[in-house]
């Protein structure tokens, strides 16, 4: 039996003018706990405005290479009677260090993940799009705006989470530089 909890993808929005960005993943028994786990794992830095989590198995993803090589996924039929619903679309837009995660680019309406992927490919620019993700909006658990004060703001005052809070850092630098221990005048 697999005793591991399900995996959830975590999306973090760090600034008002930035999109939600995939930060990594957490394990959790359900969306609500995934949101709390995401906060504890990823929001140690004091710049988060909003968090989303979605079960990893709800994400339909294609790399640009896969899209170029194989079109057969487009033929997957939608479930009979599946409603038209909102999907979120994401892209990985670069290969440099800061761009290794997919970012939220917009929404499409579709009846299945494959249809949502097709809509996304029609709707959004392919320039520098290395990976495409879509997931149904209803599968996403989102932090509320009123959560921000208790979930994210306290991180701002936690200077003790920063390495430079500890004198030992400057002392180690002095040791490494071969300097004598300077006890009192370094603060």
């Amino acid at each position: 039996m697999d005793t591991q909890w399900s995996r959830y993808e975590v999306f973090e929005k760090e600034r008002l003018d930035w999109p939600h960005r995939n930060a990594g993943s957490v394990h959790a028994p359900d969306g609500e706990m995934a949101l709390l786990n995401a906060r504890d794992v990823f929001v140690r830095r004091p710049s988060c405005l909003s968090l989303w989590v979605v079960p990893s198995d709800q994400v339909f993803s294609k790399t640009a290479q896969e899209l170029a090589e194989d079109d057969s996924w487009r033929n997957a039929p939608a479930q009979a009677g599946a409603p038209l619903e909102k999907y979120l679309a994401f892209q990985k837009q670069g290969q440099r260090a800061g761009e290794t995660f997919v970012i939220h680019v917009g929404e499409v309406e579709a009846r299945s993940p494959a249809e949502a992927m097709s809509r996304a490919l029609e709707t959004f620019s392919h320039d520098n799009a290395f990976v495409w993700w879509v997931c149904p909006d209803r599968a996403v658990t989102k932090s509320d705006a009123e959560d921000a004060a208790s979930m994210f703001e306290p991180a701002r005052s936690k200077v003790y989470r920063q390495p430079n809070f500890y004198r030992v850092l400057t002392q180690m630098q002095q040791f490494k530089a071969g300097l004598a221990f300077i006890g009192e005048d370094e603060e």
Partner: peptide
């Protein structure tokens, strides 16, 4: 019990010390 909860409770512990 699991990694995520380990981190969460460690955060809480650190908050209480704070």
């Amino acid at each position: 019990p699991i990694l995520e909860e380990d981190i969460a409770l460690s955060n809480i512990a650190q908050d209480e010390l704070g």
